[in-house]
């Protein structure tokens, strides 16, 4: 019985990213035994693990929305640009001459609203106009940064609101608020999707959209809502980014982060073809990518060069997951039956 449980566990998609993460941790611990050390500084926790969580908070948010979109069989390339738009919106409100625009609930509401709007545009184009996801979300990927620059009048807007800054660099009970928020959102999403039937609907639509329609699902609405969620997550990540660096940068905020998000989801075990998704896997995938950066620094790779091993990693993961490789492996390895018989004989 326990053997079966072990087998099932080994087959779950979460194992590989966890193993990868463990490998990275071991490499780091060998180099630096204090890698996992967590200390207290100025009344809050600090250390490499805390930093990884804190720096990863924005990617975690993007990966959350991206997981849902990919689960429906789509992809959202616009999240980086949407981050910039939302950050610029928050920045423009907070630096406006009218103090009544500085109220935090208003700033957050409008910024997230802008993200929701962007997500809705993507969703309508994909789900109702029938445009391929890459094509549809490319529109905002291209123009989003332009919109952000218009909102900020081409400036990097310095934000001096302590309340706003808290979202990006504050501490809650000694823990970085951004990380706490991201973890909380994952928990809420996990509960919200798995305690209702929403998660099942998303998986059904991604697994077989035609059969889902036959079974009476509103397939277009489900897909559209996934893009909406992705837009919201991206907007929150953008706000967090602006709060963290204390400035809304329409040029660099969210740059290349769509790739990190997609990579994290794929590495985490959610297939790009849609269907089954795992939020936990995406979460681990982000941690893996985030741990990769300090690891590479230890190994003497400059942060700007870090994309190289990331790219190689994703190509390896994709190649391993492809049908062609699976067929090769099947031919190479003896069949399961013989293995188990041999195992029994040996024991």
């Amino acid at each position: 019985m326990s053997e079966m449980r072990l087998q099932r566990w080994l087959r779950s998609p979460i194992v590989w990213p966890l193993a990868g993460l463990a490998l990275l941790l071991v490499v780091n611990l060998v180099h630096n035994p204090a890698f996992l050390h967590i200390g207290v500084l100025d009344g809050h926790l600090e250390g490499q693990p805390i930093a990884i969580f804190n720096n990863g908070a924005r990617t975690l948010l993007l990966a959350l929305g991206m997981t849902l979109v990919i689960a429906t069989g789509g992809v959202d390339l616009s999240v980086g640009s949407v981050m910039a738009v939302a950050g610029a919106t928050a920045g423009a409100l907070l630096t406006s001459e009218h103090p009544q625009f500085h109220a935090l609930p208003l700033v957050l509401g409008v910024s997230l609203g802008v993200g929701a709007l962007a997500g809705l545009l993507n969703g309508v184009l994909v789900a109702y106009a029938g445009i391929q996801p890459i094509v549809a979300t490319l529109i905002l990927m291209v123009s989003g940064r332009g919109i952000a620059q218009l909102i900020s009048h081409g400036n990097v807007l310095l934000i001096r609101s302590p309340g706003f800054g808290y979202i990006g660099k504050g501490f809650l009970l000694g823990l970085p608020f951004a990380a706490v928020l991201a973890v909380a959102l994952y928990t809420v999403a996990q509960l919200g999707l798995r305690r209702t039937a929403a998660g099942l609907f998303i998986e059904a639509v991604g697994d077989n959209p035609v059969a889902s329609r036959f079974a009476g699902l509103a397939t277009a609405r489900v897909a559209c809502l996934a893009y909406l969620a992705s837009g919201l997550c991206a907007a929150l990540a953008g706000v967090m980014d602006a709060a963290n660096i204390g400035a809304a940068d329409p040029y660099r905020s969210g740059e290349n982060m769509e790739l990190d998000a997609i990579f994290a989801v794929v590495v985490g075990g959610t297939a790009l073809t849609g269907g089954r998704f795992t939020l936990l896997g995406s979460f681990v995938g982000v941690l893996l990518l985030q741990t990769l950066t300090p690891t590479l620094v230890f190994l003497g790779v400059d942060p700007p060069v870090a994309p190289v091993p990331k790219a190689l990693l994703i190509v390896i993961v994709c190649v391993l997951q492809s049908d062609l490789t699976r067929r090769w492996l099947k031919n190479l390895l003896p069949s399961k039956a013989t293995v188990s018989v041999a195992g029994r004989v040996a024991s």
């Binding site: 209702t196 039937a197 609907f201 998986e203 697994d207 077989n208 035609v210 059969a211 079974a215 269907g275």
Partner: peptide
């Protein structure tokens, strides 16, 4: 194959999907 099964989902999920779709996401079985 193309209009019936959700191939990677479980027997249970395939079985309840139509009933659940009619009830809506907010009222899970």
């Amino acid at each position: 194959k193309t209009e019936g099964i959700l191939p990677n989902l479980s027997v249970r999920e395939n079985l309840i999907i139509a009933l659940q779709a009619r009830q809506g996401a907010g009222r899970p079985l």
